[in-house]
Design a protein around this nucleic acid. Structure first.
Length: 590
RNA sequence: CGGGGCGUAGCUCAGCUUGGUAGAGCACCUGUUUUGGGAACAGGAAGUCGCAUGUUCAAAUCAUGUCGCCCCGACCA
């Protein structure tokens, strides 16, 4: 396809709205790929849309090869389905909710497990109908708490989601593996470096799950990798090798008399340490504090997680350890009402109350010099001791792994590997869901021996716009001048830049464009009446992989110039050789 | 949801403290000269100063409210 620059909508900009913080967001705005309409809501302009379409085409190709069937499901979804699966609650405020004129509540779909179950359930009769894998590429909605980084975290976005149905686990595993492989193919074809990590299934629910991540400092996911190269996981999921621990440690003797310290306006771990240093001249380390976090399950049960001051609570781990299916940090006001001096809570708060469950991380359940909250505003205690201050008061303490893994921890492979931290952008996620949805929505199929069973499900998502943003975000995806597109997903493959689009130069440009067009190559021809410098700057900014420059000087000597945006080619090419040069650069058979 | 900041031309921002003619750069239009890495000159078009109410002879400017946008925020930095 041939597009004339002057006839399409490409508006480049030197300045960027101040709100764009990360390279991909800035460049997508500057190069005229997107335009913001509202918080986390973007229009796609021609260049951006063409990239999206190229990515979508790759996804479709690989999905079809993997045996998935394309459909299109509604965005507007009846709320009853979400209530049946319990996900209205689980998704919480992230679910976009709208009311129709009759006052009925509907959801704008952030994902389609409920809908695809309803769809498949309507037709599914027996094991002969399975397995089946359905997919769609469609706009999804999430009422993000904080939309950010342009298209990386937006409220409206394109997603490829696929769902598979199976009679047994072997079949599910087979499809899961096929999708997993298809994902590898897709991201590779899109020119993205990616890593695969073990993941927590999140509000989708289910068992096995992997995330596909593009390593990037902009990423909002923290990944831990073993330095032995045999384990990688999202911090939400990452386990830690059993920490050497003597169960007697929690019964260790006190380090001193329990002493109350006045710590005005110091609700934070760091605040307390600074206060100790400044006002008491003692070098209190965060590792010597106990962090006491008040959580509440959906049925109102108080669960208190305790980790060391330099560790972070992992809510998922705490939820599992507590035996709840839902658990979140407690609402501050409610917690205060229930007698928790938020900011100054310590484990002793459980003494004398039978409505709290105390769960302590292995690293915190030891004898040590501890400073922790005194359960009284503006006060902490030092020389806290588990035995004297908690256990001897008949309080039950459960010890578990409830903290986030961090760099330096031992790999759960237990082979001496040390975990390292990196950040990543999540571009794909595959799950084995099991029968969570088919059960709650009562989807059944008959087995060979005439038994009714709930089929097993898998689900497989890809963030289409995130692929584009992370392609630009990656190190080789941009430089000072602008975008450097991976070949396969660039809006155009070739940019033809005439120094001046008139006379013989224009004729040559048109001829080259026609020749390449005939080969099925997509071309952008910069026919604008602009100075050469402007065209070159814009060319670098929008990052088309190959640029053919045609000018009078070159033509006098019978050549044009071929330049690759990534710097790999910068040649003068004889006019009659340019088509061959291009096809060989692209890897096409001429 | 809490805290902070910002809404003035398509974009970046000044003007607001101390109320009195609406400003600059980039972009845009016309003309002339230019033309191989974001040209120069001359002229021009473009803003109900987010919206509402109030104070005032007079409001972009002060007050209140409201909407939008951005950043930060949970014993997390």
């Amino acid at each position: 396809m041939l597009t004339h620059w002057s006839r399409t909508l490409i508006r480049t900009a030197r300045h960027v709205p101040a709100e764009a913080e990360v390279p991909s967001h800035q460049l997508m705005l500057r190069a005229g790929l997107i335009r913001k309409l509202g918080s986390g809501v973007y229009s796609y302009l021609p260049l951006g849309l063409r990239s999206l379409q190229k990515v979508s085409a790759i996804i479709r190709d690989e999905m079809n090869k993997a045996g998935a069937i394309e459909i299109l499901m509604p965005t507007l979804q009846p709320m009853e389905l979400w209530e049946k699966t319990g996900r209205r609650e689980a998704y919480g405020d992230n679910l976009f909710v709208v009311k129709d004129r009759h006052g009925r509540t509907q959801a704008l779909g952030p994902t389609h497990e409920e809908i695809v179950c309803d769809l498949v359930g309507g037709y599914l009769e027996s094991y002969r109908d399975l397995p089946v894998t359905l997919y769609q590429i469609q706009t999804k909605f999430r009422d993000e708490y904080r939309p950010r980084f342009g298209v990386l975290r937006s409220r409206e976005f394109q997603m490829k989601d696929a769902y598979s149905f199976h009679m047994d686990l072997d079949s599910l595993t087979e499809t899961y593996d096929r999708q997993y492989q298809a994902y590898c193919n897709i991201f590779k074809r899109c020119g993205l470096p990616f890593e695969i990590v073990e993941a927590e299934a999140g509000p989708i629910g289910g068992s096995a799950s992997h995330e596909f991540m593009v390593p990037s400092p902009t990423g909002e996911d923290l990944i831990l990798k073993s330095d032995k190269g045999n384990y990688a996981a999202n911090v939400e999921k990452c386990e830690i090798a059993p920490r050497p621990r003597n169960p007697e440690d929690i019964n260790a003797d006190p380090t001193g008399k329990l002493e109350k310290v006045h710590t005005p306006d110091c609700p934070g771990i760091e605040d307390v340490c600074k206060f100790f240093k400044k006002n008491l001249g003692s070098k209190l380390k965060t590792a010597n504090m106990l962090k006491t976090l008040v959580c509440q399950s959906d049925d109102g049960q108080w669960v208190i997680g305790i980790v060391r001051g330099n560790h972070d609570l992992n809510e998922g781990k705490l939820r599992n350890a507590s035996g709840n299916t839902q658990l979140a940090l407690a609402d501050e006001t409610e917690a205060r009402k229930a007698g928790f001096a938020i900011g100054f809570v310590g484990p002793q708060v459980a003494v004398g109350r039978d409505d709290v469950q105390l769960i302590v991380d292995a690293d915190a359940a030891v004898g040590n010099f501890w400073v922790t909250g005194s359960n009284e505003v503006d006060h902490h205690v030092k020389h806290f001791n588990w035995k004297r201050d908690v256990l001897d008061h008949d309080v039950k303490v459960q010890v578990a792994d409830i903290r986030n893994a961090m760099a330096g921890d031992l790999s759960p492979q237990n082979d001496g590997g040390i975990l390292e931290e990196t950040k990543g952008i999540e571009i794909g996620h595959v799950f084995k869901l099991g029968d969570k949805y088919t059960k709650s929505l009562n989807i059944e199929a008959l087995t060979k021996d005439n038994q009714r069973v709930n089929p097993l499900m898998g689900c497989y998502g890809i963030g289409v716009n995130r692929i584009i943003a992370s392609a630009i975000e990656q190190e080789s995806g941009h430089d000072e001048q602008g975008i450097i597109w991976p070949k396969a997903i660039a809006p155009y493959t070739i940019l033809i830049t005439p120094i001046k689009y008139t006379g013989r130069v224009a004729e040559v440009c048109d001829q080259i464009a026609a020749d390449l067009d005939a080969l099925g190559i997509d071309i952008l021809l910069d026919d604008r009446d602009e100075r050469p410098g402007v065209k070159f700057k814009d060319a670098d900014l929008i990052g088309i992989p190959w640029r053919i420059t045609v000018g009078d000087k070159g033509l006098e000597q019978g050549h044009v110039e071929l330049k690759a945006r990534d710097g790999s080619i910068d040649d003068k090419v004889a006019l009659d050789q340019i088509v061959t040069a291009i096809t060989s650069a692209i890897g096409l058979r001429a």
